[in-house]
């Protein structure tokens, strides 16, 4: 199954609606609840990142029998130093984002800890692409 969702930068009232929709679909088809949780937490972090940092983005979800693959493509300022962005505590979030309870520099590390695969590519001045995959076959890893 393939799904595509559009996300608008700055639209905090709808931030999380894609994650919510994906959560519903994963639950409906009977994916292990711990994998659903890991996936939607990572997706929500990534979705909030688009709303917080980019102008707009598209989230593509590929749902197979054995895995979920999510690609988030945004048009935005990009990330100059991805390794630095992966460091816990590093953040460039605005005061508005911090008031929402985010911007603590924990998003990318948390995405990594919740997904089996995470790849971040970015071009400064153009945008960022986040690709993440979770496999359904080993839920025991979710307890780590």
């Amino acid at each position: 199954m393939n799904f595509e969702y559009k996300v608008e930068g700055g639209d905090f009232s709808n931030a999380g609606s894609t994650s919510s929709a994906v959560k519903r679909i994963m639950k409906q088809i009977g994916v292990d609840p711990s994998i659903v949780k890991r996936t939607v937490v990572a997706l929500y972090e990534a979705e909030v990142n688009i709303v917080a940092h980019a102008y707009r983005g598209v989230i593509s979800v590929d749902l197979d029998e054995d895995k979920i693959r999510i690609v988030l493509d945004d048009e935005g300022p990009g990330i100059p130093d991805i390794a630095q962005a992966m460091v816990k505590g590093y953040s460039t979030a605005s005061p508005e984002v911090r008031e929402m309870g985010f911007g603590a520099g924990m998003g990318l590390p948390n995405m990594q800890s919740n997904m089996d695969e995470l790849k971040v590519d970015s071009v400064v001045g153009k945008g960022t692409r986040v690709e993440m995959v979770n496999y359904f076959s080993h839920p025991e890893q979710t307890q780590a």
Binding site: F12, A15, G16, S19, S20, K23, K37, V40, V41, Y44, V48, M100, G101, F102
Partner: peptide, 8 residues
């Protein structure tokens, strides 16, 4: 976003 976060 507090509620969204709790949902996830």
């Amino acid at each position: 976003q507090t509620i969204r976060t709790c949902e996830m």
